[in-house]
């Protein structure tokens, strides 16, 4: 057995065991694993219909070391609100109540309940693991599917022609204390953000970019690499929004060409060079927009913008 290094960047303790039902290379499992390392055992999960309704295992099994309450598709946030209120009434308001949903359950069918909970600022953490389509039902497009992607309901000859819904800004517009994005290729960042969120009272929203090899039409060994490339190509910027103040938490100095990220995945293989260039422009535009938001929201809040140490080389 390999010797455990003395200094770990993430806790060794696991709150998830083997034997779950995820596909090979499932990003959603890594997202859960890292989130739980930060949350610890004093946590309850409520999970609407999504891949994780299956991954956790069939009755009477469970793969998590914390309770997992299954709930209807559109109901994650409201069930978390109810659990939090109930636990508070039995004197357990220190429990982390986490709604854990996919992008369809968040950006589409669950957005009403999520908006309600956020507007009330209920004391819950809502984590969306975003694999950019309805993967559990067999890769149908969701509003979180990006422009250009193939899914079973957006065939290659008629690929998705609308951009990915911007849930982050929608949640920021609710004026909740904390909104962040993370990605499974950056576990320390996931832990840091979940740790931060769990100290905050009110509604916390995190969206973790999580690959789906079968749905993205790529080999399982690219599960982490593809997500790392998404971040380094600025397709999925890592950021956090503290009380409305945007901070980009990773700024690749030399971003990867978006084409490199797209090339790895079969779901983009139909795109022409011009279409790839179109995506590059969208990504660049969004990055400029985020830089502007970062600068202006810092200025308005009177907070100096720290120059982050930029990453040297594109990390493939």
């Amino acid at each position: 057995m390999a010797e455990v290094p003395k200094k770990l960047t993430i806790p060794a303790e696991e709150h998830i065991c083997s034997g779950h039902l995820a596909c090979q290379g499932c990003g959603a499992v890594l997202a859960m694993r890292y989130a739980l390392k930060a949350l610890g055992p004093n946590t309850v999960y409520t999970v609407p219909a999504c891949c994780w309704s299956v991954i956790d295992g069939p009755f009477p099994y469970t793969t998590l070391g914390v309770p997992l309450f299954h709930i209807a598709f559109e109901a994650a946030a409201a069930s978390a609100a109810g659990l939090a209120a109930g636990l508070e009434m039995v004197g357990k308001e220190d429990v982390n109540v986490v709604a854990w949903a996919g992008d369809g359950g968040t950006a589409d069918i669950g957005i009403q309940a999520l908006s309600g909970a956020a507007e009330r600022n209920d004391n819950i953490m809502y984590i969306c693991y975003d694999n950019e389509a309805y993967m559990n039902t067999g890769v149908q497009r969701s509003s979180s599917t990006p422009w250009g992607a193939w899914t079973t309901t957006t065939p290659a000859r008629h690929f998705k022609k609308r951009p990915k819904k911007n849930l982050v800004d929608i949640m920021v517009a609710h004026q909740i204390p904390y909104v962040a994005t993370a990605a499974i290729a950056f576990p320390e960042d996931v832990l840091k953000k979940v740790n931060k969120a769990k100290q905050i009272k009110g509604t916390k929203y995190l969206q973790i970019f999580a690959s789906c090899p079968p749905g993205w039409r790529m080999a399982p060994e690219y599960a982490v690499k593809s997500v790392r490339m998404a971040v380094n190509a600025r397709v999925w910027p890592l950021l956090e929004v503290d009380n409305g103040v945007y901070t980009i938490t990773r700024k690749p100095r030399k971003p990867l060409p978006v084409a490199d990220y797209l090339r790895l995945q079969g779901r983009f293989s139909h795109l022409t060079e011009e279409q790839v260039e179109e995506i590059q422009q969208m990504v660049d535009h969004n990055w400029e927009r985020l830089l502007f938001l970062e600068k202006s929201t810092h200025e308005m809040a009177g907070i100096p913008l720290e120059e982050k140490k930029k990453t040297k080389e594109p990390d493939k």
Binding site: T46, F69, I71, A72, E74, A75, A77, A78, S79, A80, A81, G82, L83, A84, A85, G86, L87, M89, V90, K92, Q112, A113, S115, G116, E119
Partner: peptide, 18 residues
Amino acid sequence: VESEHSAMVACIGASAAG
């Protein structure tokens, strides 16, 4: 809540908490 659907779901969550 913002709807009756969420009203019942929140009751379900609270009831599940005991």
